[in-house]
Nucleic acid binder design. Structure first.
Lengths: 153, 153
DNA sequence: GATGAAATCCGAGTCAC
DNA sequence: GTGACTCGGATTTCATC
């Protein structure tokens, strides 16, 4: 995977701010010709620098108004449980983030569901049912000051 | 803010999966004419159901390879410190998420920086400098199994 | 009041240079 | 990297239900 130069970086920044920019707009924002811009952008997609372009959707509008953060502590004596948790997390669409961390937890999960009831179901049926889970700490999100802010680059 | 019907929902879902869909593709995916599709999509943007469309960018490619989760505990005796933390978080671009939670922390932050050194700078200059902060717990992310997964709707 | 068909206009994508 | 050319989709208009 070759690197990116200053122009590629400008293209990435512009498309990260607004993924609907037309090639023409993008071209003069980064000061190259439309043809050049088009070729470079295609390469950035092809090389995997841009895994996806997605419309952000207000969660409440689609019945996913509840956000919950979960800290998971695993049993250190069963290393297989790490793989089990990761596989499970990948298969649960409500789990938006699954991060292996250093500190008082082993994993931190970000979960979006319809309401508290839905979370309770997910919690009891999918999370505590996993092998080697020693402890699960739940943090209900009362207010989202900022979420998925654009990357600062 | 009026509601959304079944077709609007289908449009939201399609654009959330792929924000680069042309209006023509979108139209036959949701089984309406291009004109209708266009009008509805415009409305969804205008009414704020789609706050933004953004290209996802591989963080390492733009020098933001380090992800850190931070738990913040505030001094309960100084309610102003909540407002202070929120204002500060909004103004720090490296803070991607800032969530007020119920549980052993008051806030959970998701932070992206270049490396550990950058985090250390941010930590000492911006975070512990805030008024009324009683404790800050840092969770370095060792591995990201899943991040910003699409909403399950 | 919202829809679909048609008509116009503009940008994407491709070419030669 | 530039400029021109073609094709297809975006956007508007309009008749219709």
């Amino acid at each position: 995977m070759p690197g990116i130069d200053r122009i590629d970086r400008a293209i990435l920044r512009a498309l990260h701010r607004d993924g609907r920019l037309t090639n023409a707009e993008l071209a003069d924002r980064v000061n190259v010709s439309p043809a050049t811009c088009h070729r470079r952008t295609q390469r950035l997609f092809a090389e995997g620098f841009i895994p996806a372009v997605r419309a952000e959707v207000v969660p409440d509008a689609v019945g996913l108004g509840a956000l919950v953060m979960v800290g998971v502590v695993l049993d250190r004596s069963t290393p297989d449980s790490f793989a089990a948790l990761e596989t499970a997390a990948e298969g649960i669409p409500e789990v938006l983030d699954c991060l292996l961390v250093a500190g008082e937890f082993d994993y931190l999960l970000k979960i979006r569901v319809r309401d508290m009831n839905s979370f309770n179901t997910l919690h009891s049926r999918k999370l505590i049912a996993l092998p080697g889970v020693r402890q699960i700490r739940t943090f209900f999100v009362l207010k989202s000051i900022k979420e998925n802010a654009p990357l600062p680059f």
